[in-house]
């Protein structure tokens, strides 16, 4: 039984990394948002499984939040936002998909090497979970760096936070305080971003962060 529990946890966390990698090469905003929804759903499954095997019912709440809020509400809102901004058909120049993918794979490798090496004594489930979680975090970072569009940066940030939740869920008995706060902070973060997107749209008619870069305080 132990073996099966472990395998399923492993499978779900691995899938999350896979979906993260899929996100990396999406060059259309609409499909990017769809893949993000999938990311959130896989996360909620993974957290729910952790809740089940750890016998920690409060984690089901976290899973539910991931499923409803990040898997459904946010993608729908984002779709509406990009349609209203008229950028839903736009193709982003991600700048060398092959190179980005290679970097993504390197991130996964790096986190495996780092995490598995330093945690030989830890609980195996937590340990592998952590390695996967770090990969998701790093790929999220990579996405934020390579994208220039504000919406895709936000998606990158949210998938980064998904990685954090995976790590928190894997840590056995981590207090509820943190889970709620993480979920809550995402909510706040999203509101903030929403306001910003609204304002950016209002002011400049673009959400391309590259356009904002025209201004550099000291080069005027």
């Amino acid at each position: 039984m132990r073996g099966l529990q472990f395998d399923i946890a492993h499978l779900l966390a691995g899938m999350l990394v896979l979906v993260s990698l899929i996100q990396l090469y999406q060059d259309r905003l609409q499909s990017l948002i769809n893949v993000f929804a999938l990311h959130a759903i896989v996360l909620s499954l993974s957290v729910a499984w952790q809740a089940h095997i750890q016998g920690a019912p409060h984690l089901f709440v976290t899973a539910l939040i991931a499923l409803v809020f990040k898997g459904m509400v946010i993608p729908v809102v984002l779709h509406r936002v990009i349609r209203r901004l008229g950028i839903h058909r736009e193709i982003e120049t991600v700048g060398g998909i092959g190179l980005t993918m290679l970097a993504g794979v390197a991130m996964v490798g790096l986190s495996m090497v780092v995490m598995l090496k330093v945690t030989p004594g830890a609980d195996p489930i937590a340990r592998e979970d952590l390695a996967f979680a770090l990969s998701v975090v790093l790929i999220g970072l990579l996405m934020m760096v390579t994208r220039r569009n504000a919406v895709s940066q936000v998606v990158g940030f949210m998938s980064l936070e998904n990685g954090l939740i995976l790590a928190a869920a894997g840590a056995r008995g981590m207090p509820l305080v943190v889970e709620i706060s993480v979920a809550f902070s995402i909510l706040i973060a999203f509101i903030v971003i929403g306001i910003f997107l609204f304002r950016i749209r209002e002011r400049f008619d673009t959400v391309d962060v590259g356009a904002l870069d025209r201004f550099r305080g000291d080069r005027q």
């Binding site: 945690t119 952590l130 770090l134 981590m174 993480v182």
Partner: peptide, 9 residues
Amino acid sequence: LFGTILIYL
């Protein structure tokens, strides 16, 4: 936060 989780672990 990731660092904080590691400290917890």
